[in-house]
Amino acid sequence: MRKFFKIALIFVLTLGVLGGASLLAFGRDNHGNLSGSIPEQIDQYLSNQEFQGAVLIAKDGELLFKKGYGMAAPNVQNGTDTLYQIASLSKSFTAVAIMQLAEKQMLTVDDPLAKYFPNFPNADTITLGHLLSHSSGIPDYLNPDYQFDYSQVWEPNDIIEVVRNEQLEFTPGESFSYSNTGYVLLGLIIEQVSGQPYSDYIEEHIFIPSGMHHSMFTIPEGSPAAEGHVEGESGPRMDNSAAFAAGDIISTAEDLALFDEALRQNLLVSEETTKQMGTTHASKFPYQYGYGWYTQDVLGHKAVGHSGGYPSGFRHYVVRLQDEDLTVIVLSNEMTVNSKTINRNLTSIVLQEPIWIWQELL
C-alpha cells in the first residue's frame, strides 16, 4: 500500500512539474509571429484573430493606430467613425457627470440616496459613492431572474421599479456587485440636481467640451451605424432606452479617444477628481472598481478600464494606462469577440511586453 501511495505521489508531482513547464513554455505570448512596425504588428494580430469592429490606439497624446475590420451593417464597412451603441462604456460618462456636480458643490459622493429618493428602500444607508462603485447592494435589473424586456421602450423610473422591493445583496459598502440599477439612479440624480434631462447634460458638459461631435443618444436615420451580431447573425432587438444612464450613449472610436484626451487634459474634471475616480472604492475578487472605472493592473502598469456589451451583439473594451499615457479602444459588433482579450494583447504589442494567459483575463 505504501508503495502505491509513493508511486501516486511521484505521479502527481510529475504532473505538476510538467504542467508548470508547459505553462512557462506556452502560457506566455510575446507575439513573435508578428513582424514590422508596431502598427503593422497590430494589423497582423487583428487580421489573424478575424476581428470584427473598430480599434483606435493613442499613445503620448498622438494617434498610433486606427482601423475598422469587417462589416458594421449591410453595405457599411466598420470604421473608427462608425456609430456604435457603446453600452456600459457610458458609465464612465455618468460618473464624470456626477463628479462635475460634486466639484460645483451641488452634491457630494457621501450624500445618502434618501436625499434624492426618500421612498427607495434602504436609501438612508446607501450613498452616491456606493452607487458609483457598485457597492450599494442594489440588485441589477438586468439579472436574468428579472426577465427584463430589452426590446420595449422604457422610462428610467420604471426601470428602477423592477428591483425596488428586492432585498439588498449585502450591506452597502461591504462588497462589490455590478448594478446597472445604481447607474440608472445616478442618471436620475443628475437630472434632479442639474435641472436638465440626462442626455442634455451629457451633451453640454461632456460631448461639447471634449469635441465629441459624433456622439449622441439617438442615431439619425441614414447614419453609418453598426448593427449587433451573434455568431454572424443579426442580434435580438434592444431599445436604447433600456439602459438609460447605465448604457445608452452612441459614439465612435474616434470620439471615445477625444473623451479620453479631455480627461487627460483635465478639461472635464480636475486631476484630483480623476485620481479619485481611478482609486479602488469597492472590490470582490477578481474585480476592483473606482467611480465609473474598473481599477486594474495591466501588464504591471496602473490602469483603469471598462467593458461594454449588449445582448443584441456588441462587445467592447477600453483601457487607459495611467503611467504610459496609453489608451486602447476596442469596439466590436460581434458578440463572440472577446474584446477584453483583444485589448490586452494589443496593449502587449504596443508596449512590446509579453503577456501571460491570465493577464488576458484580469
Rank of each mutant, 00 (worst) to 15 (best):
K3P: 03
A8D: 01
F11V: 06
F11Q: 03
V12E: 05
G16H: 08
G16L: 13
A21I: 10
A21G: 14
L23S: 12
P39R: 02
P39L: 02
D43H: 09
A54Q: 01
L56H: 03
I57L: 06
I57C: 00
G70M: 02
M71R: 13
A73T: 05
T82G: 02
L83T: 00
A87L: 02
A95D: 07
V96T: 04
A97T: 02
A97N: 06
E103D: 04
M106F: 10
D110I: 07
L113G: 08
L132A: 05
L142F: 08
D149Q: 07
N157H: 10
I159S: 04
I160F: 09
E161A: 15
V163W: 00
Q167S: 15
E169D: 14
L186R: 05
V193L: 08
Q196H: 13
Y198H: 11
F207H: 05
H214W: 10
F217M: 14
P220Q: 15
E227N: 15
E231S: 15
G232R: 12
S234L: 05
A243I: 00
A253F: 00
L258C: 09
T274K: 14
K275A: 14
G278Q: 11
T279G: 06
W293E: 03
V304D: 03
G309R: 04
Y317E: 04
V318P: 01
L321T: 03
E324V: 07
I329G: 01
L331N: 05
R344M: 15
N345D: 13
L346R: 01
Q359D: 09
E360G: 12
L362V: 15
